[in-house]
């Protein structure tokens, strides 16, 4: 069975390969579950029934899906063990649909909304440092800092979600709220925000008060003055499209050059 779990874990990386607008991750889910169904359903007709059960709509966060996969696999094992149709069988689709939404919210908030920005901010902090303070010949380390810090949380978390959910089954749903994901998320967001502020301070110090780079207005006025205005405006108009803001800033720079500032 250990071989089957290993196979399932490797297959979880393909869960979104056949993502489609009609039923989203349904075939991806089936792809991960198939080695387990092959093992527990030796009768091809019953296996076909089981496979057909999972062709319906399914969507959750790709990392958190491992919890649902393991719990569904346990339910399928229970169904496979019961021969008579009259026996009370677990409703796997109900289990899937009930869990998908809340787990997607946790995954989106923690992995997409917190861990990814945190690791990106850490790398950005080093980009600023390598631009002047540290030796730029070692700047190749920056993308690896990002990839390493993200994946040293992501890959073990994915493995743990799958293995522990196989052991705990539905009790895992009671464990998830106790994981203090919200606290960890708050900590990471707060630390990430501090890194951004530190990066901003370094940026102002390196580029804002130096005459060697560029002069936005006159040499008498430091660039930090223009930086400050753009920073405040970009925070105020933060709701606007990033693309629009990007082109606006470039246009502003071209306009300043045209006016001879």
């Amino acid at each position: 069975m250990f071989k089957v779990y290993g196979k399932m874990f490797l297959k979880t990386f393909f869960i979104q390969s056949l993502w489609n607008f009609e039923r989203l991750q349904n075939i991806g889910f089936l792809f991960v579950l198939k080695p387990f169904l092959d093992k527990v359903y030796l009768n091809p007709d019953r296996r076909k029934e089981a496979l057909m059960r999972h062709t319906g709509f399914f969507n959750t966060h790709p990392y958190m899906a491992n919890i649902i996969i393991a719990i569904t696999a346990n339910a399928e094992k229970e169904i496979a063990a019961k021969e008579a149709a009259a026996e009370k069988l677990p409703d796997t689709n109900f289990i899937k649909s009930v869990m998908a939404g809340p787990l997607a919210a946790i995954g989106d908030s923690f992995f997409w909304g917190t861990l990814r920005p945190f690791t990106a901010f850490l790398s950005i902090f080093f980009v600023i440092l390598f631009s002047k303070v540290l030796d730029p010949s070692y700047s190749w380390i920056v993308p690896f800092i990002f990839l390493f810090t993200y994946n040293c949380v992501h890959i073990p978390a994915r493995y743990w979600f799958l293995s522990i959910s196989f052991k705990l089954d539905k009790e895992m749903l009671a464990v998830v709220p106790k994981l203090e994901i919200k606290f960890l998320g708050d900590m990471a967001r707060y630390t990430g925000f501090l890194l951004v502020i530190a990066s901003l301070v370094f940026y102002f110090k390196i580029f804002g008060f130096s005459a060697v780079h560029t002069n936005f207005l006159t040499p008498a006025i430091p660039d930090a003055f223009v930086f400050g205005i753009v920073l405040v405006v970009s925070i105020i108009f933060g709701r606007m499209s990033a693309t629009f803001m990007f082109y606006s800033v470039v246009l502003l720079c071209v306009l300043m050059s045209y006016l001879g500032l």
Partner: peptide, 22 residues
């Protein structure tokens, strides 16, 4: 103008990050 934007666009980025994490 594009040379100025090289230094100003990261500031827009910082603003965007601060807005989203305010």
């Amino acid at each position: 103008g594009l040379k100025k934007a090289w230094y100003l666009l990261p500031i827009l980025g910082f603003g965007s990050v601060i807005y989203n994490f305010k």
